[in-house]
Design a protein around this nucleic acid. Sequence first.
DNA 1: CTTTCGATGACGATGATTGTCAAAGTCATC
DNA 2: GATGACTTTGACAATCATCGTCATCGAAAG
Lengths: 131, 131
Amino acid sequence: MSPAPARSTRQRAAVADLLSRVDGFRSAQELHELLRSEGASVGLTTVYRHVQALAEAGQVDVLRHEDGEAVYRACGTGGHHHHLVCRDCGRSVEVEGPAVEAWTDDVAAQHGFTDVQHTLEIFGTCRDCAA
Amino acid sequence: MSPAPARSTRQRAAVADLLSRVDGFRSAQELHELLRSEGASVGLTTVYRHVQALAEAGQVDVLRHEDGEAVYRACGTGGHHHHLVCRDCGRSVEVEGPAVEAWTDDVAAQHGFTDVQHTLEIFGTCRDCAA
DNA sequence: CTTTCGATGACGATGATTGTCAAAGTCATC
DNA sequence: GATGACTTTGACAATCATCGTCATCGAAAG
């Protein structure tokens, strides 16, 4: 198999750049809107493709709103972490919880589960949105 | 406002009963399939309605697969708890983590977030499915 | 039994996501 | 700078879960 070249295109750069500038979780549709409003015309399909590629590459984190819509965010830390997300504005804080990691592995092992992963997200209303 | 009558119908009973017999998370579509295969004909729309009503009433738990599909399960414990879910067969174990609850509230408070909730699910492969 | 009104379900509508494929762009090479 | 091979793009159609509609059915009360 070929090592996947990954060409640099205007669209790829635009999506990656936008994600790095926004400090909250956004849906593909929202990102598409933002790009258009900034004058950078990128097809919706392309936004989906890049956002998913970045997610698979581990460069952005994905989670789901209550309604199931996928939202994306570029995170500073490359390692494993969780999020404290404002349910109003989408702004989020990256948090780590070593104790939680250990606990989940423990629980899984106790019940004979292997190949363990977990999801942990905290939702709330941030100070600004509480106004 | 009226106190919501909630009539007892064959369909309502069938959905509730099925959920109580199945020990794993199932999607509305899967539940609909199961009901049909058991001979109990219930409309898909009706399955959706009951499953959501039960979820709002706190009688079943909801979570989302990776692909965003909602899956439901009737849980024994009424209180707040989390799940250890087999990603192959959907079977799940209810677990509690008092330490985690405290930690999430703590973290949220530190960052000025209020009205806090959280989701925590552990995915793995159960012993049976590891074969 | 009859009336009343919520419950049902076939069907269409919605909305996010994915598949398709011709046209345009990128990169290595000449 | 031009060329060719191969990738990426994006308009559009297709999927798929889920929700809205509304005529019809059935449970419960009188």
